[in-house]
Lab assay of single mutants.
Amino acid sequence: HNLTITQGKLFFHYNPKLCLSEIHKMEEVSGTKGRQERNDIALKTNGDQASCENELLKFSYIRTSFDKILLRWEPYWPPDFRDLLGFMLFYKEAPYQNVTEFDGQDACGSNSWTVVDIDPPLRSNDPKSQNHPGWLMRGLKPWTQYAIFVKTLVTFSDERRTYGAKSDIIYVQTDATNPSVPLDPISVSNSSSQIILKWKPPSDPNGNITHYLVFWERQAEDSELFELDYCLKGLKLPSRTWSPPFESEDSQKHNQSEYEDSAGECCSCPKTDSQILKELEESSFRKTFEDYLHNVVFVPRKTSSGTGAEDPRPSRKRRSLGDVGNVTVAVPTVAAFPNTSSTSVPTSPEEHRPFEKVVNKESLVISGLRHFTGYRIELQACNQDTPEERCSVAAYVSARTMPEAKADDIVGPVTHEIFENNVVHLMWQEPKEPNGLIVLYEVSYRRYGDEELHLCVSRKHFALERGCRLRGLSPGNYSVRIRATSLAGNGSWTEPTYFYVTDYLDVPSNIA
């Protein structure tokens, strides 16, 4: 807008934040220059609390790290170098490059900038070799853009010569660093050979998330399962459950009422301010606690030095998902009996873990797994792929695949051998790939016309006998059925096997 004052003059007093240069501009645009008398524009009460600059400061050096910015700028000295009290560095987070010096300023003089007072450097006698002032900004957020400017702080001049310097606002972004852990990993099994893994992005990506790394490792069953005799009275049979499938998407929606109208769909109840505040506090606490764990609990591995020492970490090797089922080394339970199943799973520490690289999504279907087997899954978020990966501390989750139908069934015939004193040795093959492992066998036998009897055969007993022995049988026709019990439950009964026990007292003698 054009402003013209045809008559009258300007009068400025007691404006401590208004620089004289701005008042002189007002004289020019209003056409009143030359009308004012000496005392109409006070030299001592206008701009006496402001830094009124008329020179431009330029930054000469900028260096960044993930949490620091090192700045240096060209030296500046007023005509009387004693008038320079120091520099004021202003900075704040700036997602967009549209910041002005006066953003967030209120009537009390406060604003949204963080201000650092910096002492002037030592003055050199040689004007050509003056030290460049600077400042190291610490405690910054990774991968965050900051708006920065600097200006001088000078003393009051009796001659009211307006001098000083100020830089333009520059924008500097800190470097990326390792992201925080992925949030809320959930693993479920939808079949006997697959596990579905879902997660949420890290709360602090500290860069642009480029991919996720998912490692999985087959877990050995508890050692007590191999040692305890679950045929003993009072000892509860062990059981394991597989990871249940995901709930429906509708039930997972946030901010939804727990109660549904019987007449149909209901609208979600909005969260109160107290609920939102509580969630923010919980989120802040979780982030602080995660940072504490990362800094205190997890110790970084030592990389190899120039002395030739090897990095103890196993090298990563990509495998196809079809090879995942046989990740671990199978060892027989008892070496003397080769027909026992290889369900003991000690994992070799030198073995390469299978892994998958996930790009542009937060889910993965891990296939080719062994049925009813526990897996430990390790999830890392990465925001750099080359020249070397920059990934987060791992988040861990466990899951067990679903049982395989008929995996616990005894394959092959049940054979028998009759000894003296009416002892019958029953023999059968253990299931080759049971659900988890076989903890015991149930032997059901009966003599024709009598009630059915049951015998429990422990895992250890089966390994020693290759089956079991029935003792003290009365003469007669017998039928026997056997079924295995694994961590997933009972298998199917075998087809009945028949044998006849004679009275050993009636056996004919070869003595003449």
Rank of each mutant, 00 (worst) to 15 (best):
S262L: 08
A512T: 01
L277R: 13
K287V: 03
S392Q: 00
L369M: 09
C391R: 03
I410S: 10
V457K: 06
S398T: 11
K361P: 11
S239D: 12
A336W: 05
E281T: 12
S320M: 07
I438H: 02
S239F: 08
P244I: 09
E495F: 07
P332F: 04
Q275V: 09
T347E: 15
W428K: 01
T494P: 02
P312H: 13
S315E: 12
S363P: 11
C391P: 01
Q252D: 14
E420V: 10
T241C: 04
L232A: 12
S274K: 07
Y478D: 00
K236I: 11
Y396E: 02
S342W: 03
E362Q: 08
I276W: 05
T347I: 08
S474H: 13
L232P: 08
F355P: 09
M402Q: 08
C267S: 02
V414G: 02
E224H: 13
E310V: 07
H461F: 11
A220T: 09
E247I: 03
Y500M: 09
V439Y: 09
G449Q: 07
L473N: 10
V423S: 04
F355R: 07
D408Y: 01
A336V: 15
K302A: 07
N208W: 15
F289S: 02
G467Y: 10
L225F: 05
Y445Q: 02
P475K: 11
C391Y: 15
V297E: 02
F285L: 04
Q252I: 09
L293V: 14
Y230I: 15
E495P: 07
Q380R: 03
E290H: 02
G325N: 08
T347S: 12
G412H: 11
W428L: 01
R483P: 00
K317N: 07
L321F: 11
G308S: 11
H371F: 09
C382R: 00
N490S: 06
C456Y: 01
T272S: 11
V414T: 06
C269M: 02
T494E: 01
S320A: 15
S284F: 06
V365E: 13
V439R: 09
G489N: 06
K287H: 02
S268E: 14
E465V: 13
K302E: 07
Q380D: 07
V331L: 11
D204V: 04
V296G: 14
Q219D: 06
K233L: 12
T340D: 11
S251T: 09
G436F: 12
H454P: 08
D261F: 14
E433M: 05
N208M: 06
A484N: 00
H416C: 10
V501C: 09
Q384M: 08
N339L: 11
N255K: 06
A309S: 15
N383Q: 07
G489A: 08
Q252R: 11
T272H: 11
L237I: 13
S284N: 14
Q380M: 15
D229K: 08
V359Y: 09
T386A: 14
N477M: 07
S305Q: 14
E388G: 15
G264F: 04
T272L: 05
A335G: 14
T347H: 04
F215R: 07
D261G: 02
D261N: 13
S248C: 06
L455G: 06
S283W: 10
N435Y: 09
D503V: 09
V439G: 08
Y498D: 14
F246A: 06
T502A: 15
D450V: 15
R318V: 12
E389T: 09
L473A: 04
E227S: 10
N206W: 03
R400M: 06
S342R: 14
L225S: 07
L505T: 14
L277N: 12
T333M: 14
S344C: 10
G436W: 02
N383L: 08
E290R: 02
T373Q: 08
P245V: 12
H425A: 06
F499D: 01
G467T: 08
P245G: 07
T333L: 12
H425D: 08
A309F: 04
N326L: 10
N510R: 07
L321Y: 08
A335W: 13
L321N: 05
V327Q: 11
R319P: 10
E227F: 14
E351I: 04
A220K: 07
I482K: 01
L235M: 11
N208F: 12
H454Q: 11
D311P: 09
C231R: 01
A405S: 04
A407D: 05
I366D: 00
F355I: 09
S342N: 11
I209P: 02
Y504D: 04
D229G: 09
N339Q: 11
G306E: 08
L277Q: 03
S363D: 15
K302S: 07
A309E: 07
P300M: 07
A463E: 06
V327G: 09
E442Y: 02
E281C: 02
T497A: 08
V329H: 11
E265Q: 13
S486P: 01
S248H: 07
N435K: 00
E442N: 01
N360P: 07
F226L: 08
N422L: 10
T502N: 05
A484I: 15
R459L: 10
F372M: 05
F289K: 01
R240H: 09
L225H: 07
E260K: 03
T241F: 13
P238Y: 06
N421K: 12
R471S: 04
D273Q: 12
G449R: 03
H454E: 01
A488Q: 15
N326G: 03
Y445R: 02
G472N: 13
F289E: 01
Y504K: 13
T303D: 15
R483A: 09
N208V: 07
L505F: 11
V297P: 02
V297S: 02
D291W: 02
V457H: 03
K432Y: 12
G489D: 14
V299W: 04
T288Y: 14
I377L: 12
S248E: 00
L237C: 06
A405E: 14
N206K: 03
Y445H: 05
D506N: 14
V297G: 03
P332A: 10
R466H: 11
A335L: 13
S223C: 08
D291R: 02
C468H: 07
E417N: 07
L237F: 11
G412T: 09
P434A: 05
E389V: 12
P300D: 12
E281H: 12
T303K: 12
G306M: 12
D323H: 11
P403F: 03
T340Y: 08
P205L: 14
C382L: 00
C267V: 03
M427P: 01
T343L: 11
E279A: 06
I438L: 11
Q252A: 12
V423K: 10
I276V: 04
N477Y: 15
N490G: 15
P496I: 13
L379A: 09
A263F: 08
V365P: 14
H425T: 09
S283E: 07
H416E: 04
Q219L: 11
E282K: 04
N510I: 15
Y230P: 04
C456N: 00
C391V: 01
P314R: 06
V439K: 08
T415P: 04
V345F: 05
V345S: 11
H294V: 04
V423A: 13
F372A: 03
F499Y: 02
D323L: 07
E389P: 09
E389L: 08
E389W: 11
D261M: 06
S363M: 03
E433Y: 12
S492M: 12
E310K: 03
S492R: 13
D385W: 13
P205W: 06
D385F: 07
L225D: 03
H454R: 06
R376H: 14
C269P: 04
P244V: 06
V480S: 06
G306A: 13
S348P: 13
I482C: 05
V345W: 12
Y259Q: 07
R483S: 05
T343D: 03
S348T: 06
D273I: 14
Y498T: 08
N422I: 08
D506T: 07
G308T: 11
Y375L: 12
A394K: 04
S315R: 11
G207A: 03
G467R: 10
L213A: 13
F462I: 06
R319F: 10
G489C: 02
G436M: 15
T333D: 05
R319Q: 12
K406H: 09
V365Q: 06
D408R: 00
Y445I: 02
D385T: 00
P354G: 10
E310I: 04
P434L: 02
C266N: 08
V423Y: 14
E247D: 05
S283D: 11
E221G: 09
F499N: 01
A309M: 15
F246N: 14
F499H: 02
I366H: 01
E420S: 03
I276T: 07
Y212I: 11
P508K: 04
Y500G: 12
R469A: 06
S342V: 14
F246C: 15
V324E: 10
P387R: 06
H211R: 11
R400N: 03
A394R: 07
D409I: 10
D311Q: 14
S367L: 08
G306R: 12
L277I: 11
S363H: 04
S223D: 15
G325L: 02
L437Q: 10
G322F: 02
T497K: 11
V365L: 08
S458M: 12
D222C: 10
P270G: 02
A405T: 10
K317C: 12
R400L: 05
C267Y: 04
V296F: 10
